[in-house]
Each structure stands twice: as C-alpha cells, then as structure tokens.
Design a binder for these strands. Structure first.
Lengths: 337, 337
DNA sequence: GTGAAAGCGCTAACAC
DNA sequence: GTGTTAGCGCTTTCAC
C-alpha cells in the first residue's frame, strides 16, 4: 500500500538503467526510438506516476504557483482565480491556494511560512492593511517571481495587473454628473489600498472638472461588504447637506446602500442616484438595476498568470504593469426619470 | 540566487551534525535543550525554510490536499472552499485547487494526472456527468483517502458530506402547499447527480403526501445557471396547464426564473410562487425576496476537511456519511398576499 | 545511445 | 544526546 511505481521498477522490468528510463520519459537527449517506445509502453502498463517531490528536489523546481488573496467568496476574486486556473492548467502548473481573510496577521503568517522551496512563483492580492511588503521582497530576492493583481503593493518593483481604477471612477462620476446629479458622495474602501486611492482620485477629479463641491462629509472610508454599504449610507443620510448621488467603491457596498435606501422609501435614481464598481452579477438582479463600472476579472486572472509564467521561464524579467480599462455599464440606478 | 538555506548550513555553522539539527527543528527525540535553542536561533538568523519536496520525499507525505470541484464562482462552492481552507490552514495543510468547469473530460484529465505521490488526500465534488469513478477508486486503493462533498459519487465506498437534499426539498414543497399552491413545477438539475435525484424525490413525495398531481410536463432537467432557469420557465409557461408555483433546484435557477416572470409582468408570489435552494446572498437582494432552503456550505467545507484529515492520520478509516440538515428560509416569493 | 554514480534536502535507523 | 549513513525518486554529469 502506498508504494508507487517508480522509474526503478520500469528499469528493472525492462532490464535497462534508470537514467535511460528517465531520459526516455522526458523525451530529451538522444534515446533510441525503440527503447523509448518500450519505456513509454511499460510506464503506461504499470500506470507510472512521476513523483513531483523527487523531480522538484532534483530539478529545484516544482510546477506549483501560489495564489494569495483576501477572499474567494465574491464574484471578482472567484472569477480572477478561474482565469488564473485556466492558464495554469493549460501550462501544466498547479495552483496552491491561500486565503488571508483580509487579515494582515494571517497574510504575514502565510507568507512567512510559504514553502518557497517548492514554489515556482507567486500571485498575490494583498490584504487591506498589509504589512508584508518586506517579506514579499524577500521572496523576490530569493529568485521567486511575484505578480500582484488588483490590490498591489505599491513600492515593490515587480509586475502588477489591475483595472483602470482612476479612469473608471472618473467616467462613472462624469456619467452621474451628466445625468444631473450635483451632490455626489463616495463610499470608499479602506484608505490604505492603492485602488481605493485611485478611485477616490478619479471621483475628486471628475467633480473638480465640473466645478462641483467636494465635501469631506461625503467621503466615507470603510470595508467592502454589503453591511459597510448600509452603515455608510446611514451616516450619509444624517448629513445636514444630503447628497443626491452615491458612488460606491464596489457593487456590494452599492447594493447595501440601495437596500437601505429602499427600506427607507427613498427612490433610487429619482431621489438618490447610485453607482457601483465591479459589475457583480447581483447588480443586474437588484431592482432598480445598478449602474456600474465593469472590471475584466477573468482577463486580469489570465494575464496575471501569463505574466508570472513568463517571469518563471526567463531568468531576468522586466517588471510589467498591465492596466485593463473598465467599462461603464449604464442601468437604472443612475436615471432620474 | 535561488540557493536556500538548508539544515546542512545550520549544522556547519554550529559544528554539529545534520541529524541533530533535523531533530532539534522538529522538536522530536531527545535533544539537549541548549543545542535545540542554538539550532532554533541559528535557523531564525539564517532565515531557514524547510524544503517540503525533501521532507515529502523522505517521509512519503507532503502536507498537501487536493480539492477538485466544478466551479468556484458561486456562493456555495466558494464558501465550501473557505471552510476547507480554514481547517486546512489550522492544521498546517496546504490546498491544491483543481477546477473542472463541470466537464467530465477535464475532470478525468485532472484525476489521471494528479500528483498523487505528493498528495495526502483528496476532497472532491464531481462533475455533472462524471465518468471518473474508476479513477477515484484507484486513488483510494493507492492509499490516498478521498472525501466527497455535495456532489458525491454514489457507489464509491468512502466518506461523504452533504446536505439533506431530500428533506430540504420535501419541507420546501410542503411550505408551498401550505401556502395554497397546488400546481407545483420543479426545474431540476442534471439528472445524473445524486442530489438532483434526492431533491426530485423530496418534491415528488411531498406532492404525493398531499394528493397533488405530479405531471411530467412540470419537471424539467437542465443546468444550474441563471440562464437555465430562464429557459426552463419559458418552457413551463407554454404548458397547457400552467403551474402556479416553481421549485428550483438552486437559487440561481430560481432567480433566472423570477427575472423572466418579472419581465413578463407575472406577479411572483401572487400568481406564481417561487422556491429556491442554497440561500445564496442574491436571494435576499432580489425583489420580491426569494424563499429558499439554506445549505450550511461553510460547515460542509469544514466537516469534509476534518474528516479527510482524520482519514489521513489513521491508516484504517471507516467511511462516514455526514448529512447536514437544511433550513427553510421563508421570504416573499412564496406568499400569495 | 546507455550505464554508473553523485547529489538534490531531509528523515530515520543504527551506532556509540 | 549526538553522529554516521543509507535512502526517498529523480536528474544529470561523466564515462564508455
């Protein structure tokens, strides 16, 4: 039990040496065609499975890539992983999954205990208050390529893949403005994240461009959950000067906001416009449907993985920054009529 | 570059043997307290990371478990993985992720190429028309424990974790009946899946118990997507004898159905009641909100992983079947008033 | 074209 | 309590 067929078994069976078997199996070096045939046949017959611990040890490379991210239970991240998985699978790489629950401590613990000796590369989206940049750099210095996606660590010099948060926000807010909203609030994500800052900047610049007021009272930083959206809105409704539109950092917050507005009998669109970010499937399910900026999650996943594989195959890689454009999807929640 | 610190380095530095270092590091056998201290210190100083390929090779066990499932982009599966991940992380196990996209070919390919030599166990939810049971059995015969969750392979003798599909469906349909619906249709999942059969049976038995008609026209098998729900409903609406309620195999189908009904101006609840299964967050977002049977996804994930770890630690394990009860969540979509 | 042998980093007898 | 050594399964130099 639990003894697996090894190349030794094949060698013995065929009365040849293990090195020949090894060579034949990998179809490298010059091996007599007949010999190779025989080896392949016997391997199939014995149902031989290579031991990746052994190959990893001998070659100094497993075919594993680690994915570290805050959550998987949402549309965006689960779709990104699907994209990563797709590329990894095609290329014979295996995905090792680490979930930080958006906790910096957990993230630190994970990265500290990473089996870097059996990892060919790292794909990561950092936690909200990530404190691990030093450790990420250490990994990179150990010769293990790292690609960040979505939530990137700013000052680390490596490849990054993200959506165009600034322009997405800018366009979205301009859309609100052109639909007649004048007092636009922003319920943002944690201030520490780069993309939060980018979306905030896009929002502010759009307001400035159109000479609309930017009020500190109308900018609230909190988490990304539906609940956060709800409490943010409660707070906004208490403002002396009540906003007539809300730009939410993501769709879940937007939906939380809408649910609260609906429960208070406030007409979404007519009284208060709502704009999201992501294009989560829920944005089409809720009524009125939610205007949002679509993020190309699947592409981001694929591209991140492709970049990483490229870095893995080349010794010296040049960090690349890839930015995908978002796409404004206009629905009912931003229409006054 | 890419030379990692090994126990040899520590040994040399401290002028002791590698075996002592190994023992000290693992805190096993009797090692002089002082020696251990020194080793630990030096390991920390040199930033030593164990090579898991090597430990795996030497001990014949990696700390990897593979998770194979159809999708990750939905509430149920992503939550299950979160549960699995939680337990695995606590126990120092690492998760290797495989996504089949619900394709039997892909599933087969994955299982055939599984690095079983570097896997301690397997957690799997099979594809809709899975054809891999022979291969799963082979894995088990190789001494690698397998636990199925949700979508279980029926005739394989190993542990299984699922929700109570039969009783969930039964209760849900009884709820429809008690709310006055008499012509209840069922838009089901792929007929090949065990849980589809269980939910169907629960539905049929509830109807029988209350002497309600079971019409073949009212039972439609298709996939699990929102789109499937939409087309299923189109088909139902064409029936000469139109049903007055729909029990959907899952919430996404239910939501697809509701969206179609809404677009046709059919009043949900009043004219046609809708019942889902899962308790996907979307079921609370849609309006009217969706009555559904909640599945304990997180618990299922945790329990599956716990069971697997138990099987891994014991040589001889007795297969267990764990069934979690569902919970009927009554909302607006099944109310006639 | 093929074999022998060393070595990847670690564990586990077996000595002492 | 510690060192020596063989071995996990595979790759790879070096011979021939």
């Amino acid at each position: 039990m639990k003894h697996f067929i090894t190349i030794k078994d094949i060698a013995r069976e065929l009365n040849i040496s293990v090195s020949t078997v090894s060579r034949a199996l990998r179809d490298t070096y010059d091996v007599n065609v007949e010999t190779r045939e025989k080896v392949l046949e016997m391997a199939a017959k014995l149902n031989y499975k290579p031991n990746f611990n052994a190959t990893g040890l001998a070659k100094g490379s497993s075919h594993n890539i680690a994915v570290i991210l805050p959550f998987i239970t949402n549309y965006y991240f689960s779709t990104v992983i699907t994209g990563i998985q797709e590329i990894a699978y095609q290329s014979g790489y295996t995905i090792v999954l680490y979930v930080t629950n958006d906790s910096p401590e957990r993230e630190l613990d994970i990265i500290k205990n990473l089996p870097i000796t059996s990892l060919d590369g790292l794909l990561v989206s950092i936690a909200s208050n990530s404190d691990a940049s030093g450790h990420f750099e250490e990994v990179i210095n150990n010769g293990i390529p790292v690609v960040f996606f979505d939530r990137v660590a700013n000052h680390i010099e490596t490849s990054k893949v993200m959506q165009d948060d600034y322009n997405g926000a800018f366009e979205g807010v301009e859309h609100l403005i052109s639909n007649g909203y004048k007092k636009i609030a922003h319920i943002a994500g944690p201030a520490s994240l780069t993309f939060t800052q980018n979306r905030l900047k896009g929002y502010q610049d759009a307001l400035s461009k159109h000479n609309l007021p930017i009020s500190e009272d109308w900018i609230i930083h909190s988490g990304f959950s539906q609940e956060d959206g709800k409490s943010d809105v409660e707070q906004l409704l208490k403002c002396k000067n009540r906003p007539d539109a809300i730009f939410a950092a993501n769709d879940r917050k937007a939906i939380g906001a809408m649910l609260t507005l609906k429960s208070k009998g406030i007409k979404i669109g007519k009284e208060i416009g709502v704009l999201g970010f992501t294009n989560d499937p829920s944005s089409e399910i809720i009524s009125p449907s939610l205007t949002t900026i679509a993020e190309p999650a699947l592409e981001i996943g694929k591209k991140s993985c492709e970049l990483l594989l490229k870095h893995i195959s080349k010794k010296h890689f040049h960090p690349e920054e890839v930015i995908f454009p978002g796409k404004l999807i206009i629905r009912e929640s931003t229409s006054k009529v």
